[in-house]
Design a protein around this nucleic acid. Sequence first.
DNA 1: ACAACACATAAGCACACACTTATGCGATTC
DNA 2: GAATCGCATAAGTGTGTGCTTATGTGTTGT
Lengths: 104, 104
Amino acid sequence: MIEHDIFRALADSTRRTIFEKLANGSMNASTLRQGMDISQPAMSQHLAVLRAARLVREQREGRFVNYEVDPDGLALIAQWLAKYRAYWPARIDALKLLLKDMDQ
Amino acid sequence: MIEHDIFRALADSTRRTIFEKLANGSMNASTLRQGMDISQPAMSQHLAVLRAARLVREQREGRFVNYEVDPDGLALIAQWLAKYRAYWPARIDALKLLLKDMDQ
DNA sequence: ACAACACATAAGCACACACTTATGCGATTC
DNA sequence: GAATCGCATAAGTGTGTGCTTATGTGTTGT
């Protein structure tokens, strides 16, 4: 179940930080580690979990592996969220942002 | 960190099932248990986790406690998702639904 | 070809988590 | 007011998870 993988992946704050960093630009695993006080194997394992959840995808470049945000994971979260749109508050900033962005 | 509580709460499939049931109508804890093969304390603990994540809220009614979906949790997910809107695929069904719903 | 590098995988360990049974606490019912 | 009911909490237990160190695999550079 990919939905399970997604929420499980995001349940860890270190992985959310990694994802956020990648959202600001794709990087290889070593660059990601900078300023994160995390071992190389730990980073590799976190990236594997994010990859399994389709939140992140890899792109081999020689001996480097460049990681970037995978839109598929975000789309699945949006789909999950859409199931409960009957319960969304009428107007919140996030949804207004959302609307504005989709309006073009 | 409420964001952490939300993703952690949704990382468990039993809790997602409970949330989904509540999205189809508010219920008390005993009614929620029906057809779920789960002990009463387990249900109580799951509801406590969902409550801490603001995905669910309670409403005491005598000796019953009626549970319902709390829009706050969903709004927080939407806000989290909105941070990464730059990576959303151009057109997916979930986002179209979203747009249509917000358009009124 | 050999060393250095970027990354993945293996194995082991401490801790978090979801479950259980037992018990406590109010509110209803008889 | 005693029993019952709906639910919460306590305490204990097995399993999952995130970390570590050690090692493997493939690529680059000399």
